[in-house]
Amino acid sequence: MKKTVFLGALTAAGLVGGAAAAATLDDVKARGTLNCGVTTGLVGFAAPDANGVWEGFDVAVCRAVAAAVLGDPTSVEFVPTTGKTRFTALASGEVDMLARNTTWTFSRDTDLKFDFVGVNYYDGQGFMVPKSLGVTSAKELDGATVCIQTGTTTELNLADYFRKNNMNYEPVPIETNAEGQQQYLAGACDTYTTDASGLAATRAAFENPTEHVILPEIISKEPLGPLVRHGDNEWEDIVRWTLNALITAEELGVTSANVAELAAGKTDSPETNRLLGTEGNLGEMIGLDADWAVRALSAVGNYGEVFEKNIGEKTPIGLARGLNAQWADGGILYSPPFR
């Protein structure tokens, strides 16, 4: 007799699901929540805190989109995905967008039929070793045992790097960052490799972070960014320009503290006005209302604020802005103009 629950649930799910074939924006609005794919847990980027509330740099992007579209940064359903499940989750529509430190590559953009909406973190793959090992350069790692997360571009970069430098290594494949951390700390591998930001985040969670160094070599380009399904251009625009709004806001000096004040009336800067919807009708053009950017910004703050709050130098993760500074400050963060 218990099969009925199952069938009942199935019918219910079918009825809910039946409506999901329309455009993503309508789905999200109808559902009232944004389904956002994140990692299973990487402190600083996306991890649940002690109360189960997701926090982090990638999480902030999801919250900003939710605030822009739904008006509520908390109406986000975070779907933890592994390297293996993330693309299927997005392709099957289980999530509306993926904000899971995913590297923008040619084949992912074209062959896997996704669209990267931009770059929220310019990263590169690095190595972390215990200080006691006495290694100062990745070139000295010949013969080392390397812990590596499977299903990521890091795996391919690693193979390329060692082959190019004619070195041997012993890969120890691991599924999640948590496992990598355990293996590395237990000494089951000499070095742990992943994106430099991820290394910093992982190191921050160690008991004695100072006993580990991140080697200077960065062996790859890893532009990380949110992505959406290919083909739904309206939704893609919304996610893209929400990200750009965060970046532009920093450039224009709009913060979560002053956004309400600036949005109250017209300012001297026309671009600020356009961004905050007091001038022009940019919101309308992407299918939202005029206040969309105001909501996003007051929910999470501008790019700089998000960075400082989650992964910046004052946090345990302690990443410098580096490449991720605004273009005017010597970085390569450059948002197209709001016009």
Binding site: L10, A13, G14, V16, G17, G18, A20, A21, A22, K84, T85, T88, A91, S92, G93, E94
Partner: peptide
Amino acid sequence: NVVLAYFLPPGTTF
């Protein structure tokens, strides 16, 4: 986890 979605009507998720 990864294949079933292909066999369901487009857009259906459960």
